[in-house]
């Protein structure tokens, strides 16, 4: 933390800071402003008009739905997974551990290809889903699976270390006092991991909102029905509907910036609660 007394190194310092700021500024800020200018160039009124379009609303609604699904599924099962990986010891734990990170290593298009080869035309599981009368590919179930898949690691990765740090002392104390596992989880464990869980689900949200490749492949891109916000932007670009693309892209960008600020706030709050290792 200690700052080095600069002395004669002042120039190096200025050059390095300048280079870092310039690099991030041109790479990140300049393009972001350029998009904002494009979207708000015509004033607020056309912006709002686009947002009121039914296909735009449907796309934003679909994104909200898929994001909620990913948050609920990975919030609960991700926490359970973290629990198992930290607290349990069993054969094959290492493999399970390695598997958690797989979604980060898979290209989104590969995820889409897998879902298509499972549920698409002539897919492996197609006979089963057909027999049950389920429509998976080119409908929301496949899109939900794609979204849940790409966001799987976040909650596990955030909750795991917190669980580990917390240890089992308090839980054991609760058990000794006669609390059931259920009560212990909700009264002792959950409050302990709440920041990790909140952080993980916010990351999940950010990633789910922005998911594009996997969803594009399995959505079939039916406007107003299976289109997410990102898929809408892509189609709008293809159709030369620049206004629509700009507006929805800006909404997505603003949403992600909002989530980013929320994450930063959480990190500081968590840091204030004496989190070692920051």
């Amino acid at each position: 933390m200690a700052e080095r007394a600069g002395g004669g190194q002042g120039r190096v310092r200025v050059v390095l800071i300048g280079a870092a700021v310039l690099y991030v500024g041109t790479l990140v800020l300049l393009p972001a402003f350029s998009l904002l200018r494009g979207a708000l160039g015509g004033g607020l009124r056309p912006f709002v008009e686009v947002l009121a379009r039914p296909d735009v609303l449907a796309a934003l609604g679909m994104t909200a739905k898929l994001t909620a699904f990913a948050v609920v599924v990975n919030g609960t099962l991700g926490t359970a997974l973290a629990f198992v990986l930290v607290r349990d010891r069993f054969v094959g734990k290492r493999v399970l551990h390695a598997l958690v990170d797989v979604p980060f290593a898979l290209s989104p298009v590969a995820v889409g290809v897998v879902l298509l080869s499972l549920f698409g035309k002539g897919g492996l599981l197609r006979p089963i889903t057909d027999a049950l009368g389920w429509e998976v590919a080119f409908a929301w179930p496949a899109m939900a699976m794609a979204t849940a898949f790409v966001t799987l690691p976040f909650v596990v990765r955030e909750v795991g270390p917190v669980l580990e740090e917390m240890g089992t002392d308090q839980e054991l104390a609760a058990y000794t006092l006669g609390a059931s596992p259920f009560v212990t989880f909700f009264r002792v464990t959950l409050p302990g991991i709440r920041w990790g869980l909140a952080y993980g689900t916010t990351l999940t949200m950010a990633r789910a909102i922005g998911e594009f490749g996997a969803v594009l492949l399995v959505s079939g891109g039916i406007a107003g029905k299976t289109e997410t916000a990102t898929v809408f932007v892509y189609r709008a670009l293809e159709d030369r509907d620049d206004r629509g693309a700009y507006v929805v892209a800006t909404v997505l960008a603003l949403a992600s910036i909002g989530l980013l600020l929320l994450l930063d706030l959480m990190r500081r709050k968590r840091g204030a609660r004496a989190e070692p290792g920051g």
């Binding site: 990140v28 998009l35 992600s256 910036i257």
Partner: peptide, 9 residues
Amino acid sequence: LPFAIPTLV
């Protein structure tokens, strides 16, 4: 920011 912003955007 790049982690948060959708890649398409």
